[in-house]
Write a protein that binds this DNA or RNA. Structure first.
Length: 463
RNA sequence: GAGGUUGUAGCUCAGUUGGUUAGAGCGCCAGAUUGUGGCUCUGGAGGUCGCGGGUUCGAAUCCCGUCUUCCUCCCCA
């Protein structure tokens, strides 16, 4: 019987080469997170739907993958439930779902473990998340987020350090041309108040967020469709023509909206972030690729303060990182008064960016340094002690396991990109020596068994 | 959720207005080279043309459905 092979839509397999590259990115991110004092945690792939729902806005809830209850999931279903439709029924027969991001599970974790934690609590987390939207470029149904959050402090130093972490990770990865966009939810609120549309900032955000995609005319049309009056739109438009440096944009808004409390809060925060960033780094703000973008909105509904998004320039992939401050995410889990801020790298998009810009080093693959070829049972036995000596010395080594022809063994090593091959037949073993062949250059030397470790160490580490 | 696109050998793709036995390159296997990969030469294996139905004497080709791929919108990492 032949079964149909495949993997679910929007998921992918990763081969050794891809995994090596993914680890390369994750290792750099991990190092930077730890450098800034964040500690790792992990949480389950599944969360209770009661934890997940209602945190991501309406759209987000629809993109949740639900997990069917085990056993007889129909036993408590009534005709009434069925009549109420699929959306209702899903809540009856599913009580678990795959996590949609790492921030909400983190908030849940903090509340559940609050007595064990030292606040401010700084954690990082690199795990897959799942979203049920249709796959396309840079968009997957299963992808990894590399998330760093701190809860229990409203210090804007955290925001400044997020900028520092982003720039440090990008520096290490070799990504040079990128933009960190920053905005503030209160500034968006101020804008909606300013045009007399208080409470409609959600609709406003969705429309103006598209400015760079559909242009000003498109945004006007979008705003009209969403029920904004002509005079409101006209009042709004000049705000987006403001461009210039972070400080200039900030100054513009400070002058325009000084009488609004919401604007005041946003402006104070953004100014504080600027000076903290300058003080922490010892560099003026213009050395950072930071842009104050009043049209940046971000859909996740739990953000309340500064929001971030990072875009790599000249690569057609969506944002590779995003985040922001959320004032009361733990409140819904019963722990009031905890404010948090965090951000996340999208590993898979970073991977796509690195690939597009050809930024991966050539030797990320985790193969062995040397493969031992054997000729027969006798020579295999003779070479086995050497295998362990190599490994003992920290040299990655393997012995081709079965009795195939030399040609086939060599081919195997070549295909895996193994840089060195060690051959030892009865003649060499009798002389207490082996043949070492460099697979890149084709050069081969005969060398005493006792000198192999030293020789390879020198060749491998003194390049 | 809306629109478009793709599917033929392991991979990348040809395949004419529907017409004999569906092709190429790369890869794979074997040999040239019985203790040496990568280059070269020779030979070989490998396909239910995504799946289901329909039109036709005849379908990879036309029609319908379905799944899948990739892309755009929405939204996001």
């Amino acid at each position: 019987m032949k079964i149909e092979l495949g993997i679910p839509k929007g998921t992918r397999d990763f081969g050794p080469e891809q995994v090596a590259k993914r680890h390369y990115i994750m290792n750099h991110i991990r190092e930077v997170f730890e450098l800034f004092g964040y500690e790792p945690i992990e949480t389950p792939a599944m969360e209770l739907l009661s934890v997940l729902t209602g945190k991501y806005g309406e759209e987000g809830d629809q993109l949740l993958f639900r997990v069917l209850n085990s056993g007889d999931f129909l036993k408590d279903v009534s005709q009434e439930d069925i009549a109420k439709g699929a959306a209702h029924l899903a809540n009856v027969i599913c009580e678990k779902g795959l996590r949609y991001d790492l921030t909400v599970p983190f908030a849940r974790y903090v509340v559940m473990h609050q007595h064990e934690l030292a606040f401010p609590f700084k954690r990082y987390q690199m795990q897959p998340v799942w979203r049920g939207d249709s796959p396309q470029k840079g968009r997957y149904r299963e992808f990894y987020q590399c998330d760093a959050d701190v809860v229990g402090t409203d210090s804007l130093l955290c925001e400044a350090e997020i900028v520092l972490m982003i720039t440090e990770v990008f520096r290490r990865l070799g990504i040079e041309d990128y933009t960190i966009k920053i905005n503030h939810r209160e500034l968006l609120r101020a804008m909606s108040e300013w045009i007399g549309a208080a409470g409609q900032e959600q609709a406003l955000c969705v429309a103006i967020d598209k400015l760079d995609k559909i242009g000003q005319e498109g945004v006007v049309r979008e705003l009209q469709e969403r029920g904004f009056a002509q005079h409101q739109i006209e009042q709004l438009l000049p705000l987006f023509e403001v461009n210039g440096t972070y400080a200039e944009v900030l100054k513009h808004f400070a002058e325009q909206m000084k009488e609004l409390a919401s604007a005041k809060k946003a402006i104070e925060d953004l100014q504080a972030i600027q000076s903290l960033l300058e003080e922490a780094s010892g560099q003026p703000l213009n050395t950072f690729p930071l842009m104050l973008d009043p049209t940046l909105a971000r859909g996740l509904s739990y953000y309340t303060g500064a929001i971030f998004e990072v875009k790599v320039n000249n690569v057609a992939i969506g944002s590779v990182s995003g985040g922001g401050r959320y004032d009361n995410l733990t409140g819904t889990f019963g722990k009031e008064g905890l404010t948090g801020v965090g951000f996340s790298f999208g590993l898979d998009r970073l991977y796509d960016v690195m690939e597009a810009l050809d930024l991966f080093p050539k030797d990320t693959r985790a193969g062995v340094d040397v493969m031992l070829v054997h000729f027969d049972a006798e020579s295999r036995k003779g070479v086995l002690p050497l295998l362990q000596r190599l490994r003992g010395a920290g040299i990655k080594a393997e012995l081709y396991p079965q009795a195939d022809k030399i040609k086939k063994q060599m081919k195997y090593a070549n295909k895996k990109g193994t840089p060195w091959v060690l051959l030892a037949g009865s003649e060499e073993l009798q002389r207490q020596s082996v043949q070492l062949k460099n697979m890149h250059t084709g050069e081969q030397v005969e060398i005493a068994v006792d000198e192999v470790v030293g020789f390879l160490k020198q060749k491998l580490y003194n390049r």
